[in-house]
C-alpha cells in the first residue's frame, strides 16, 4: 500500500513581473488502487500541481509538503521521484530527436527497475502493449514524440504507464484531443495498468466523458489554485450539469 500525501502545497512560477502564485494550499491524499478525478476550469493550476509533484524546475514550492510513504518527495530530483514510483502522463509530451521509442523505453525501464529487463520478455511486453493500444509496431523505431499526432503522443504516454508500472500516476488531460475510439483504447490501457499494479491515479480532466471509461472513486473540484470541493463520482455529474460557475464565483 502506497500513499502520496500533498499537504498545504503552495507553488509559484517566476514571471517577468516577479513570482506569481499558482497553487494556494493544495491538500490531497492518494492511496494505491484509488482513482481521483481532478476537474476544474482552464488555468486553475491542475497541470501545475502535476508538474510540481513530478519536480519540473519551473515551479517553485513556497510552502507545504509532498510525501510518498513518508519520504520527502520535494527533496528528490526529478528522476529520483520517478524511481520512487511517481509518474506523470504529460498534457504536452516532449519530442526527443534522435532517441527511438524502443531505446527510450528500455532505458527508462532499466532506470526504474535498477536492472535491465530480460530481453525476450521485454520485447514481447512492449509488442503486446503497443498492440493493445493500437500502435503501429513501426512506432518503436521512431524518435520519441517526433512527428506524433496528438493522439499518438497520448497513446505513447499510456504505453509508458503500462510498461513502467508506477505506484502513483498523474494523468494530465490524457483524454483531450482524442476521438471516441482513441479515448476508449487509451482508457482501457489505463485500466489495464491499474488492474496489474494497483496503482493510485490522479486523473486530471476537463470533461466528464473519460469518467465513463475510468471510474473515479473521488472527484475534486480544482479552482484558482486549490481544491474547493471533494465528493464521489456523482460530483462529476453535477459539474457536467452545472459547470464550474458556482465555484468560480464563490472564490472570486
Amino acid at each position: 500500500m502506497t500513499v502520496l500525501e500533498i499537504r498545504d502545497l503552495s507553488v509559484s512560477v517566476t514571471t517577468e513581473d516577479g513570482p506569481k502564485e499558482i497553487l494556494r494550499g493544495v491538500n490531497l491524499t492518494i492511496r494505491s488502487g484509488e482513482t481521483h478525478a481532478i476537474m476544474g476550469p482552464n488555468g486553475s493550476g491542475k497541470s501545475t500541481l502535476a508538474y510540481s509533484v513530478a519536480g519540473h524546475p519551473k515551479y517553485h514550492v513556497t510552502s507545504g509538503t509532498v510525501t510518498l510513504d513518508g519520504e520527502d518527495v520535494l527533496a528528490m530530483s526529478v528522476d529520483e521521484r520517478a524511481r520512487a514510483g511517481l509518474f506523470l502522463a504529460m498534457q504536452y509530451p516532449v519530442e526527443v530527436p534522435g532517441v527511438t521509442v524502443s531505446n527510450f523505453l528500455r532505458t527508462a525501464k532499466t532506470a526504474i527497475d535498477g536492472q535491465a529487463p530480460k530481453l525476450r520478455t521485454w520485447v514481447k511486453d512492449v509488442r503486446v502493449a503497443m498492440d493493445e493500444l493500437k500502435m503501429d509496431p513501426a512506432f518503436a523505431e521512431r524518435n520519441v514524440n517526433e512527428g506524433f499526432s496528438g493522439g499518438e503522443k497520448k497513446r505513447h504516454e499510456v504505453l509508458q504507464l503500462e510498461l513502467l508500472r508506477p505506484k502513483i500516476a498523474f494523468l494530465d488531460e490524457t483524454d483531450s484531443g482524442l476521438d471516441v475510439d482513441a479515448l476508449r483504447v487509451v482508457s482501457e490501457g489505463v485500466n489495464r495498468a491499474k488492474a496489474e499494479s494497483d496503482m493510485g491515479i490522479a486523473l486530471i480532466t476537463h470533461y466528464t466523458r473519460i469518467l465513463s471509461y475510468i471510474k473515479p472513486d473521488f472527484v475534486h473540484v480544482f479552482v484558482d489554485g486549490r481544491i474547493v470541493e471533494s465528493g464521489g463520482a456523482d460530483l462529476a455529474h453535477r459539474l457536467e450539469a452545472e459547470g464550474y460557475d458556482r465555484f468560480v464565483s464563490a472564490t472570486a
Binding site: A54, G55, H56, P57, S77, V78, D79, R81, A82, R83, F87, L88, M90, P93, V94, E95, V96, V99, F104, T107, A108, A111, I112, V144, Q160, L164
Partner: peptide, 12 residues
C-alpha cells in the same frame, strides 16, 4: 527534453 527523460527515471 531533460525533464521528460528524467521524469521517466533516467538520471540527468
Amino acid at each position: 527534453q531533460l525533464f521528460y527523460l528524467q521524469a521517466r527515471g533516467i538520471p540527468e
